[in-house]
Design a protein around this nucleic acid. Structure first.
Lengths: 202, 202, 202, 202
DNA sequence: AATGAATGAGCTTTCATTCAT
DNA sequence: AATGAATGAAAGCTCATTCAT
């Protein structure tokens, strides 16, 4: 009779590995994150890691997939709702703050992949990024046609949204400042909205 | 009789090492950049590197110092001039584009340090960042008092400027898009200006 | 109430493990043969292997014992019969061919142990080898006394018989040649017989 | 001025590594031979091994190439000389004994590759084997046409020569017997000659 | 009796750094 | 000053074995 291991158990352990990996990679970067340490953090043996993931790179892939999907969900959710773009931006900023507070390590891993590691390792991330950006671009184009927002080249939109929103989590950490993210989010959302609001003149 | 090596020679060789290192780190990330390859690229022997730098980390430090100073120079230059903030933002964006085009590798190294590697390694960079940001913040605060721009929490300003401007170089590369940076810069500068322009007094 | 497992069941399962192990070791060599794969091939769980054998090394021991005994049986059978040495050699060669065709994997494992792995692991095999060789040597000495064969140092006999007969299976495989073993056996037996036939008394 | 390392130095060090590797592989088999131990035996650092060889497998390749070429040289030398096949066999046997005494480890490595390790690792060896065997076969066929030796299928010849000659070194070791190889060689050469001598009857 | 998830010792290989020349 | 052969710590990964079920 085999040891009974429920699917839930498996998923929990898998998640424990991912969390431990995210913490290590966030702190030391992908290359310096040590698989032994990750196992230790996750409270399991080294070999066990390789029962759940094919390789260290595979772990990174899973992390990037997870955070990439989370961000895309947020964006999708914000775009789906029938609200003004002013509110939408606010919602988006708030959701980013929430994500930053619940999954700060994951967000830092994404950043790390975006800039710090070998390009091909970041593939799972840039796939999501492309999806999310095209989602944003499409919605924005529609709103622009309806005169709800000022027209904007698509790449500018992406730059604004990702460049700005991602910087929330990051800069305060790098500068060792302790900022109130929520307050900061409101300010940024307001600036962005004023920046993209349609021209008032008739 | 020791070979006479002029100060100029030394500086040229040092610069060759830095350029080679920037290229390697930009391509592979700090950890995977190979000191042997850097030496080869720079056209010198491996041992020679260690006559100019204490360690690989020291090279990174010098790179970050160099790019950090360059950015600070740009910002300082932009803030010094007696121009409207609308023009100033445009100038700043253009200067970033110019930097991205002349020192793309250095900029990518900065990004890599900002997100991808061990916090300690990024120290030389965050020092410059702090200097530059406080310079910006101060100037902005003054402008805000004079009613030239809308009031804004300092951390929001930093987020906007760095988050947005850094994203110029980056996102197109990650998404494998070929964008016209200059055009994009103009759009972003305009949006930023509209975002921070003072409320029109009725 | 413990499950009733007949002795036959045990032996069948044991044999299944041995066959699977022989196949794996023949293909990959002892060290690279994977116990997991062996279990899978045998259609049982990994843990079960260790109910039948103490260790991987123990499995190898059993294999070597099995093939060693089989070869000794063949030699003993050939030596027991009342036939001329000319026919005896032919019989021996044919029996080797039959063994090679029915138990090729086992034979390859023996070879692997003879040359490829740690000396200690080969102990169960060299024991049988010694027995078989002394059996051969003894019979040959008797025949030599009776003038049925030319006198020969014992180690030469062993070299000839084992060196030659073992090569049947092997060389064609290594050289990726497809040979008709039976025909080859006849030729070798003839050469050997001519080689050891007694000097014709003038 | 670079450290002057002569080609001779390089070759000596390379040879030291090969000798150490041969000793380790001969004792423990390829898979269990430890690269660290090989380096230690060779009196160098671990990293140095990888300045001379690409990988562990590459070392094995060099060993097999070396012993394969040595054997081929012996066979070629024996076949080139204008002597009777009776003497030729004697010469061959003696040369094998000499090789066995000067390069026993190499010979055991060859055996190990022939039987013990994954087939593809043995590629460099079977190439030489094919060359040597076709050399032998060709020469034998010619002699056979001239009536100097009895006709024999080519694969039988290969079996006899390699199977027999290789067994010299091996069996005594496996059986832990101390044999006088030279005396044994003579006996075997004689038997082989009688076995392949042309039929006397007109 | 049977299972297979879990383990961790041990392996090969890389690469920043040193130092004799 | 300049070199590059030599080094060895440290890393990711495998797989024989155990043991709770």
């Amino acid at each position: 009779m085999p040891k009974i291991v429920t699917e839930t158990d498996r998923l929990q352990k898998r998640q424990a590995i991912l969390d431990a990996a995210a913490a290590e990679i966030a702190r030391y970067g992908y290359d310096r994150a040590n698989v032994n340490t990750i196992a230790e953090r996750a409270g399991i043996g080294i070999g066990t890691i390789y029962l759940y993931f094919q390789s260290k790179e595979d772990i990174l892939g899973a992390l990037l997939d997870s955070i990439g999907r989370a961000i895309d969900d947020i964006v999708q959710e914000c775009l789906t709702q029938e609200i003004s773009w002013s509110v939408r931006l606010q919602l988006l900023a708030d959701a980013f703050v929430a994500l930053a507070e619940s999954h700060r390590d994951y967000l830092r891993v994404q950043m790390s992949a975006l800039h710090g590691v070998n390009r091909d390792l970041g593939a799972p991330m840039s796939e999501w990024l492309r999806i999310t950006i095209s989602r944003l671009t499409e919605a924005y184009a529609l709103a622009s046609e309806q005169g709800l927002v000022a027209p904007l080249p698509p790449e500018t939109l992406a730059t604004l949204v990702f460049g700005t929103l991602d910087s929330f989590v990051l800069l305060p950490e790098v500068l060792s400042q302790h900022t109130d993210l929520s307050r900061s989010a409101q300010a940024v959302a307001r600036v962005l909205w004023r920046g993209i609001a349609p021209e008032k003149s008739a």
